[in-house]
């Protein structure tokens, strides 16, 4: 490993200034991607600029939606009651990154800026309409995460810029979300497939009746009950990871869901459309045909899980274990 110098700024401004004066420098947050790349000799920076001591990007603010600092760790996100309740998909995603030790230091900013096709917080941020807040020499700008992630290891950052955090709007109490990481093991494994869904719904009947639907044990019975209660999918988001060079939204499926009353047929259709929008490849973690088939299955499950959470039927349960 080549020698490098290690800089520890305490403010965003200081970080940008230090970065501006250095050649061949890289930001480091939790270091769980950077340190691995360094040790493998895949990167050789002369300088690391640490964001770990920048307090202003390590906070969670819950006014008008939420603002999550880029330096917030996955452990902090997964344990945050407000996020678990209102932005469940993100708590799901952060809660299944790597292992306890990794989550204790790895940050959401690092996960998004590293831009792996399998990044576990990417799909949740996409379905939650999150925007990345970026700071640079010339000030601050805000970019939807969907535009921020460009491709594998590629994000829309100009030289010297850093992400200070992510802002997510407030969704009313008719919204639920979920992320399902489909992997061979519950820990220390990258997903074969990741699916996040957010659903904002309108209920004809009583919310309590929808809640009761989830006491049934057969999925088709649950859907029939919800259909009978006139549950309408007002606004749905679907995002998929590991089916393309970057995590992507299934926009056609989202569009098709708009205004539909829930039914088995509608759920099947949404899964089919999302699968048709995926472009998975064969890899040792799973074959393309299998991934595509699982898009159908998991889109449906994540949608039902979102609705279940919206009705308040279940508290946070790791979806991989529930289903």
């Amino acid at each position: 490993m080549k020698a490098y110098d290690y800089h520890k700024p305490h403010t965003v401004k200081e970080a940008i200034d230090i970065m501006g004066g250095l050649e061949n420098a890289k930001y480091i947050a939790g270091g769980t991607d950077v340190m691995v790349l360094l040790r493998q000799g895949k990167i050789n920076p002369a300088n690391l600029v640490s964001l770990r001591n920048v307090a202003e990007i390590s906070r969670i603010d819950t006014q008008n939606g939420i603002r999550i600092g880029a330096g917030v760790t996955h452990t902090q996100i997964a344990n945050n009651e407000f996020i678990r309740e209102h932005y469940s998909a993100l708590a799901d995603g952060a809660g299944v990154v790597g292992s306890k030790q990794i989550r204790n230091v790895a940050t959401i900013g690092g996960n998004i800026c590293n831009a792996a096709p399998s990044a576990d917080t990417a799909c949740p941020l996409l379905v939650l309409d999150a925007e990345a807040v970026i700071a640079g020499k010339s000030g601050e700008r805000q970019v939807p995460v969907d535009d921020f992630i460009v491709g594998p290891s590629q994000v829309a950052l100009e030289k010297g810029e850093l992400v200070t955090g992510f802002v997510i709007p407030a969704f009313g109490d008719r919204t639920g979300s979920a992320y399902i990481k489909h992997a061979r093991r519950l820990a220390m494994d990258l997903p074969i497939l990741g699916i996040a869904v957010r659903a904002t719904v309108k209920i004809g009947g009583a919310q309590a009746a929808c809640r009761d639907a989830f006491k049934l044990t057969d999925v088709s019975d649950i859907v029939k009950r919800l259909e009978a209660e006139g549950l309408v999918l007002e606004d749905v988001r679907v995002a998929m990871s590991v089916v393309a060079p970057r995590p992507v939204r299934a926009r056609k499926a989202e569009e098709a869901a708009k205004g539909k009353t829930i039914s088995e047929k509608v759920l099947e259709e949404l899964g089919e459309i999302a699968a048709s929008e995926s472009k998975p490849r064969d890899s040792f973690r799973g074959e393309a045909w299998y991934r595509r088939d699982m898009v159908k299955v998991l889109t449906k499950r994540a949608l039902l899980k979102s609705i279940e959470r919206m009705t308040g039927a279940s508290s946070m349960v790791a979806p991989s274990r529930l289903w």
Binding site: I28, S50, N104, V105
Partner: peptide, 28 residues
Amino acid sequence: GVGECGACTVIVDGEAVNSCLYPVMEVE
């Protein structure tokens, strides 16, 4: 040496971390 096995786990400020990925300068 790359965060996968946990053999190097130590506790820093109350949290379990992989010491193989922990930059020494952050220990200050």
